[in-house]
Amino acid sequence: MESIAPPSKGSIANLSPDVLETPPLSLGQLTWRRFRRHKMANFGAIMLILLVLYAFGGAFVFSEAYANKTETGARLQAPSREHPFGTDTVGRDILARTIYGGQISILIGLTAMLVELVIGVTVGAISGFFGGLIDSLLMRITEAVIVIPQIFLLLVMAKYFAASIPNITILGRTFSGSVVVIILVIGVTTWPYLARIVRSQFLSIKENDFILAARATGTSTTEIIFRHILPNSIAPIIVSGTLSVASAITLEAYISFLGLGVRPPTATWGNMLEGAYNYIETAWWLWFFPGALIALIVLSINFVGDGLRDALDPHSRAI
């Protein structure tokens, strides 16, 4: 007898035809669905929200003045009830400083990403859309920036602009001018990779028939770029922008760690680490908390970026 075995109940119930014939989802819904299925990305997103709450919600618990208050009598105290994360070399409370430092670190990450995005997308779009002489000129510049490893360029530029910008006051809070320097320096050195991505996107989309059709109906160049090509190349830009936030936070930490970054009293997770390795044997809490927070936020953002990459992938078949 060669008849088919009776189907097991479970498999049929799960996949009845009407489940398979749900109306098509919009791209946003589809992306959201895929993203939600990505376990690592969900974990990353939740961690990220918690970290942002920590940095910005914590400001209601401790005042900034407290975070910057030095108390030489209480320097290098181990974590205790009074100072859960201990105190630093001049007696400032590390818990409070990680909160305010987190704000600056996250802010630097986001704004540096924006700077990178503006330069990278502009250069990439112009290069890919117009081609020819402009393209080869812009690509040579891009190459020139890539040829010097970023950290070297960052250090030179940080040194170049150091101390040339005064403190700034926004919303009643004073920031070290070096924050702006670091944001600009990071943005100015990271754009080439994004520019290359955008350029190749533009090159391939430009050749599509719908662009030809738009041109034939007399659509203006700006409209073609902003209405037709850019929206179609948004996926890699989003992914790359997300990952850029993580790399900007790391880069800020590197240059601050090396002593050329954001100047005190403004705290960042990076500059809290400056000189901490001198206390590796005596005061582990100096480097552990800010270091762990940086590692955690970078990890979370990378998870989210990875999830977005999978979710936005047009070739992905997963529902």
């Binding site: 590197y254 901490a276 590796i280 044997e281 480097w287 270091g291 940086i294 590692a295 990378n302």
Partner: peptide
């Protein structure tokens, strides 16, 4: 690998120093 890939160099250095040296 994901953990290590995301970990800043200095943090790895400090943690390993703390464990294997201190």
């Amino acid at each position: 690998t994901f953990l290590f890939y995301s970990m800043p160099v200095f943090f790895f250095a400090l943690v390993t120093m703390y464990i294997f040296a201190v």
